[in-house]
Amino acid sequence: IGSLMYASIFGNVSAIIQRLYSGTARYHTQMLRVREFIRFHQIPNPLRQRLEEYFQHAWSYTNGIDMNAVLKGFPECLQADICLHLNRSLLQHCKPFRGATKGCLRALAMKFKTTHAPPGDTLVHAGDLLTALYFISRGSIEILRGDVVVAILGKNDIFGEPLNLYARPGKSNGDVRALTYCDLHKIHRDDLLEVLDMYPEFSDHFWSSLEITFNLRDTNMIPGSPGSTELEGGFSRQRKRKLSFRRRTDKDTEQPGEVSALGPGRAGAGPSSRGRPGGPWGESPSSGPSSPESSEDEGPGRSSSPLRLVPFSSPRPPGEPPGGEPLMEDCEKSSDTCNPLSGAFSGVSNIFSFWGDSRGRQYQELPRCPAPTPSLLNIPLSSPGRRPRGDVESRLDALQRQLNRLETRLSADMATVLQLLQRQMTLVPPAYSAVTTPGPGPTSTSPLLPVSPLPTLTLDSLSQVSQFMACEELPPGAPELPQEGPTRRLSLPGQLGALTSQPLHRHGSDPG
């Protein structure tokens, strides 16, 4: 009997000691992992102490058991019943959930998450997105703005933001810190809205009876308010094209079509300037034949640059190039080494500058006005007194259609001029006259002087055409309008007829 009692007592005591040691061994194993994590990542002392304290409290609170892992091991129907039991206190005593059906309560219970916070733990920081609604079931918390405590909340209090009033989550206007050990039930806004969409009859009752104890939403960050730039940057990543407008005076608003859609830094370009900076079609017209890549860069430059609305530039004389043409100036200075066709295309550029300027006046029909002061630039669209967005969009579309028509007509005119030049060069190729044979009589004449090349004649003739079109064909006081194609086609051969009437002889060394 004594040996039996000794064996039973010894066996029970050893089993008890073994169970104690097993729990202690698990605790030390998990604690060792936490300390190894702290050492590996070199976490500083204040945060390291918070980690160790939280682990110790969580171990004593749950005995080292992962409740979520245990809950996920059950089937979904059983999980709903378990969640309904775990959140029964909240669902029974909170006013917004009263009167809900059994199915609605089960769906809500599945969406709730339980959070346990030790003292000093910050649940929400200032500036964080308010993605959830919090219900306090135990403990107390404090809300701070800077170093000032603005509120202390306790059991059955609710904090967050009214989700039904805002389409997008706002930002917190303060820090939420736990004063004691707290148990909180939180539900994400997407989950709550999903359940309320499934039960629309409960939705009206819920929003009407929901009383948020403390609204954390920062009202200064609401979209459309003066301080909402940061919020707009976070939620409006896919922005449309940006529009900046110059201020319109009362006198300017009476004149229709007073602005032109141009790229940034293009205030001095012609009315047909689009795409790359520098001139019509993204580059100076005089350098068009020598740089074919300008047409390839036109599309990307047009689509990537934001639109700006600026006044037209001052008018340019008909014979003056659009500006920024070092290529043609070098050719004029060193005409001995340049291609003979460069002079002809220089005359073509003069005609283009004249036609572009006159067509700009035809479509816009307003006098040039000086540029406004820099303080009046970049007025935002949302400022008071601005035109409605639809009106601005319609004006932009009208300007775009005008620019497209202008570009089409300029292309047709350019093709006409090039065809005339090619026809003239085919009839009378460039050549130098040879020395004529002296006559049989004693009164022999001296050799004839060489005839100037055709490109120079073409430049003079085209300059005469531009001056003739600019000065004589337009009646005084009438708006400057571009001439039609047949009129220009008839004027060019008439001007060139006198020049080509002389018999030109080919030089023996000319390969053409």
Rank of each mutant, 00 (worst) to 15 (best):
T337V: 09
G299I: 08
E407C: 04
G477Y: 05
T219W: 08
E407V: 08
E329Q: 11
A167V: 10
S304Q: 08
D297N: 15
P200C: 02
L449R: 13
G439P: 15
E142P: 01
L163K: 03
T373Q: 10
L462D: 13
Y166G: 11
R387Q: 13
G477P: 10
S203R: 10
A371T: 10
P486T: 04
D510F: 05
R266P: 12
A344W: 04
D204T: 13
G360A: 13
G494I: 09
P440D: 08
N339K: 05
M414P: 03
D157Y: 01
I136K: 01
F312N: 14
T373P: 14
A371K: 12
P306C: 13
W207A: 04
L410V: 08
T500N: 05
L163R: 03
P300G: 15
G270C: 13
D330T: 10
P479A: 07
R302V: 08
T249I: 12
C369N: 15
L179M: 12
T426R: 08
S260L: 10
R302H: 13
S466I: 08
C471P: 08
V392M: 15
P455S: 09
R395L: 06
D330M: 06
G263M: 10
S287V: 08
Y166P: 04
V176Y: 03
V259N: 13
E329V: 11
P455Q: 10
P292W: 13
G441H: 15
M221L: 15
P223A: 11
R395C: 06
D252Q: 07
F345C: 14
P318I: 15
R145F: 03
K251H: 09
T213A: 10
L457W: 12
A415Y: 04
L184V: 12
S375W: 05
P380S: 08
T443G: 10
R248D: 12
G512P: 05
V176P: 02
P271L: 11
S284I: 08
R168I: 11
I158D: 02
I136Q: 01
S375N: 01
P450G: 10
S444K: 06
Q495L: 08
S375D: 04
G439Q: 04
L231C: 10
R361G: 07
L403K: 03
L396F: 11
L449W: 15
L196A: 03
E365N: 15
T437Y: 11
R138M: 04
A344S: 11
I152Q: 12
E365Y: 04
A261T: 14
C338K: 15
V451N: 13
L341R: 08
R316D: 12
L327H: 14
G154L: 04
I143V: 10
L153G: 02
M414H: 05
F245N: 12
R168N: 14
A434H: 10
P447W: 04
M328Q: 01
R386I: 05
R401V: 08
F135S: 02
T500W: 10
L163I: 12
P340V: 10
T500E: 15
R386S: 08
Q419Y: 04
I136F: 01
M221Y: 08
N164H: 11
L454C: 08
S203E: 10
L496H: 11
R266N: 12
S203Q: 15
P306W: 15
N164T: 09
Q255G: 10
P318L: 06
R386M: 15
S509C: 05
A151H: 01
D250K: 10
G127Y: 01
E230A: 11
G234R: 09
S375L: 09
S461W: 04
L377K: 03
H505Q: 10
I187H: 01
K240C: 10
V428F: 01
S446H: 08
R423T: 10
R308Y: 10
H205T: 10
G224P: 12
H205D: 11
K242N: 07
L499N: 15
R138D: 13
I222R: 10
E407S: 04
L492T: 06
G170L: 02
F135A: 02
L454D: 13
P453W: 04
L496R: 10
L462P: 10
P321T: 11
Q400K: 15
L216M: 04
G160Q: 02
L153S: 02
H505V: 11
K240N: 15
V148M: 12
S334N: 15
G356K: 15
G265I: 10
N156A: 04
A167T: 12
V465H: 07
S225W: 09
E258Y: 07
Y363I: 13
R274V: 05
N378Y: 04
T458W: 06
T229S: 06
A269V: 12
L457C: 09
E258G: 10
G257M: 09
F312G: 07
S172C: 06
L184H: 01
G441F: 15
E232C: 13
S304D: 11
T408Y: 06
S314I: 09
P442H: 13
G323R: 03
H205L: 07
R177N: 03
E365W: 03
A132I: 03
L418H: 09
Q400C: 15
L366D: 05
P486V: 04
S225E: 12
P388I: 10
K240S: 15
A371M: 06
H188E: 11
L406N: 04
T253Y: 10
L474K: 07
A398W: 04
S446Y: 08
F202W: 13
D197S: 10
S313H: 06
G233E: 12
C182L: 05
R389W: 15
S225V: 11
S334H: 12
H505Y: 11
K186E: 11
S244W: 10
R177W: 01
S463P: 08
Q422W: 04
Q424P: 05
L133D: 01
F345E: 11
L492D: 14
R247I: 12
G324W: 04
Q422D: 11
L163P: 12
D397A: 10
R386C: 05
W207T: 10
S313P: 13
S303K: 13
P388M: 11
P315G: 10
P440E: 13
A178W: 01
A412M: 09
P482Y: 04
G127V: 03
H205S: 14
R389Q: 04
C182N: 01
R241H: 11
L243S: 11
Y134E: 01
H185V: 13
Y432C: 14
K155N: 08
E296C: 11
L377R: 09
L406P: 01
G497R: 09
S304T: 07
P429C: 09
R368K: 12
H205K: 11
A412S: 06
E232F: 08
Q402L: 13
V195G: 02
S305N: 03
E320N: 14
S304I: 14
G227C: 07
S286L: 11
L196Y: 02
T249N: 11
M425Y: 11
C471Y: 14
I141G: 01
L449C: 02
D157F: 01
F135P: 03
T500G: 07
F214S: 02
Q419C: 06
Y432R: 15
M425T: 13
L192D: 01
P447T: 11
Y199H: 11
T436V: 06
R145C: 03
Q495W: 11
G270F: 05
E142T: 11
L496V: 09
R423W: 11
G324C: 12
I379V: 10
R217D: 03
N378F: 03
